[in-house]
Design a binder for these strands. Sequence first.
DNA 1: GAGATTAGTTGACAAAAATCAAAATAACCA
DNA 2: TGGTTATTTTGATTTTTGTCAACTAATCTC
Lengths: 252, 252
Amino acid sequence: MFKPVLIEPSIYCQLDIVQFKSSCAACSLRELCLPVGLNEDEVKKLDIVSQKRKITRGGYLHHAGTKFQSLYAVRSGFLKTCVLEQDGRHQVTGFHMTGELLGLDAISTDAHTCDAIALEDSEVCEIPFAKLEEISRDIPSLMRHFHKIMSREIVRDHGVMLLLGSMKAEERLASFLLNLSRRFHLRGYSEYNFNLRMTREEIGSYLGLKLETVSRAFSKFQDEEIITVDNKHIQIKDIARLRMKLSNSDVS
Amino acid sequence: MFKPVLIEPSIYCQLDIVQFKSSCAACSLRELCLPVGLNEDEVKKLDIVSQKRKITRGGYLHHAGTKFQSLYAVRSGFLKTCVLEQDGRHQVTGFHMTGELLGLDAISTDAHTCDAIALEDSEVCEIPFAKLEEISRDIPSLMRHFHKIMSREIVRDHGVMLLLGSMKAEERLASFLLNLSRRFHLRGYSEYNFNLRMTREEIGSYLGLKLETVSRAFSKFQDEEIITVDNKHIQIKDIARLRMKLSNSDVS
DNA sequence: GAGATTAGTTGACAAAAATCAAAATAACCA
DNA sequence: TGGTTATTTTGATTTTTGTCAACTAATCTC
């Protein structure tokens, strides 16, 4: 009926949701559940609840403030989330690709706390949260899996806080590129060649830098022959030195 | 048997765990559960699982890397959590006071990802996580409450990311002081007079600033007669102008 | 496909924060 | 209590990043 893509176990802990090539419309719960060892019957009883949704480039998956009903699992495409303050301040809080789960922030207040915007045509699965909670009551491994996903988001955020709080511009960009590289690689794409889906300004917002600073850092890396930059296309030529950009500054 | 402190409903959503004066040793689950409407019988069946623990000033509640077993609810005192990288980089990710829950980051990998250190003599309740999951399976409102707590941590982290990514030193300090003020107030202390439990360096680490910059910002606020600083003691003299420090810079 | 708009690069300069240094104050411990 | 250590403040200077401006390249729209 459907064929799981072979993914080595170590990757389970990296991807929010392990991807399975599946022809069924109710895709995301299947993905959520299979890695935790559910059998076909158990998966079947979940099929009803999830639903696909397409968002074209530039479109909103959800706005901050709208009522929270569902989590969203990215099936394909690329999205950003950003928080905004009343004073016009705003910040990209994350870039999200296939297999990642959006909307976790909204559980706390039953309303989304950020905008989610597609940076390319994307497809998500909508997972009604109440249903997910209900089902996970019967399936402890699913519940644990969900808790791990939430916890992982907290850990990720702490990593970003470290980046924003203690790294210089070049270190931030190196960290960003290495993170993207790893995530593309995990999904079966090249870790050395990829296209950025976001603008310099969006990268800057995520990294707490102005777009000019981002641009200069890209140029610097290119001058040093660590990467090649051709507008949105990035080639990592010397990943070891890119990693060194992160580690070799002695921070107290 | 025990008397809940009267707390208005709006505050439920602010405190991670509503505080109840209770003489029972198994304190924290009671606190976790009562706000979600459990009766005495239901609470009783949870009493077994939780356990008190004291940490003296400077002591570790847990180290990064140690195996995850339990969440910790702060009963009294004041703690900080910090993440550390192999390269010596480190960052305070949070300050935690009565009623807040620690250890949520550890669920993802079954190991703590940060150090938790007491900034004054503190007392926590240890909540075995496996037990909490098990019990919450039978009590949907407890499960939902727990999910909200995790989600709230994510929202909080996004707020810190916004602060670190888009605010200047004085704005960060203003935001920090207002946050502390609010949290003290919620716990029944003065919102205008309080003692900092952390050093300038720890504040700086949390805010992504050097200690000298923090010190200068304090001095600036004092010169402007917005606050009075007497070493660790802070008096907020003009909270409206402190709030303005946050809002009046027009950030793009 | 041409013109308009948006995105990206680079330089010159300004602003913010870090660094270095020294002194003052507070906290801790025997 | 007194001496030691840790913390805090403040000044001078450097580094880093932001700001403004001009220009180029890419993308979108009609």
